[in-house]
């Protein structure tokens, strides 16, 4: 049994909230650069250049890439041999509040979806805990903006809809979203499980590094063909036209019921933020 203190968790979440909002992971910046080089549509090249300028400026001045510094989605892999000295949920929320205050990040949470009063410190975080083997504790902070989040969809398809129905649902979701989620986007897809699990799968798919295909060759091929189909839509960066509608497609799968084919699509904007640390 190893002890991790609540204070260590708070400190890590505070630092990662700031870091994730001001600096993109290398896989994302490299993919944006590669896409700019592949674009032959001048307007699309200009938009991608502007996006790269913004990344460089935010990193240099340590300011938020986007004013929407998001809901704080926090994924925790908690080793079953870890003892947390203190309250895990409180520790995460204190880290989010401190990070968003000290990092000059926007507070975008309302305490109630219908009565809509800002909570003032960007809490509560949206926390997912997985218990895993070992004595490690891994934290991922993934700030998620609402412009792209609002464009997500869940479909409870029929088994007879099959692979074609699945791919049509994903492509239609991107087509309907059009310019609204700030393309170029990252497309996270969940398939299987049940109504609640499939949405979480789609969000988890967004955490996989760009360029790392699904380990199952069947799903890796589906990811590749979906990316081609999405980039044939012509939506382009910001929806002004062009090749680069999506930077990547990731699919995650779970077993499901004989009567079910749940599909969820969670879209991320080009500011595909996340930071991970193991304590």
């Amino acid at each position: 049994m190893r002890t991790v203190t609540a204070l260590d968790i708070t400190r890590a979440v505070r630092e990662m909230s700031i870091e994730a909002n001001c600096q993109l992971p290398l896989d994302v910046t490299m993919r944006i650069e590669a896409c700019r080089q592949c674009e032959d549509w001048p307007g699309a090249q200009r938009v991608l250049s502007t996006i790269e300028d913004n990344i460089a400026l935010a990193t240099r001045d340590r300011v938020p890439l986007c004013q929407d510094t998001g809901m704080a989605c926090v994924f925790i892999e908690l080793g079953q041999d870890v003892h947390v000295d203190g309250n895990l949920v409180d520790a995460v929320n204190e880290g989010v509040a401190a990070g968003y205050r000290e990092g000059y990040l926007r507070k975008s949470m309302v305490g109630d979806p219908l009565r809509r009063t800002n909570t003032g410190d960007n809490t509560p975080a949206l926390i997912h805990v997985d218990v895993v083997e070992g004595d490690g504790l891994t934290l991922t902070v993934a700030p998620k903006g609402a412009g792209s989040e609002n464009m997500g969809r869940i479909g409870m398809l029929k088994p007879s809809d099959g692979i074609d129905g699945f791919t049509s649902f994903v492509i239609d979701t991107v087509r309907q979203a059009g310019p609204n989620p700030c393309p170029p986007i990252v497309v996270g897809v969940g398939v299987g499980g049940n109504f609640d699990q499939v949405a979480l799968l789609a969000k988890r798919a967004l955490l996989r590094p760009l360029g790392q295909p699904n380990r199952d060759p069947f799903y890796a091929r589906l990811e590749s063909s979906l990316l081609d189909a999405i980039n044939a839509l012509g939506i382009g960066p910001q929806g002004f036209g062009g090749r680069t509608t999506a930077l990547g497609v990731s699919i995650e799968m779970l077993p499901t019921h004989i009567a079910s084919l749940p599909v969820a699509v969670n879209i991320n904007c080009h500011v595909a933020r996340h930071a991970t640390r193991t304590l």
Partner: peptide, 13 residues
């Protein structure tokens, strides 16, 4: 008008 979504640090200048 459209401004570039996500280019928020640049626009602030």
């Amino acid at each position: 008008f459209a401004a570039i979504g996500g280019a928020a640090a640049l626009i602030a200048r």
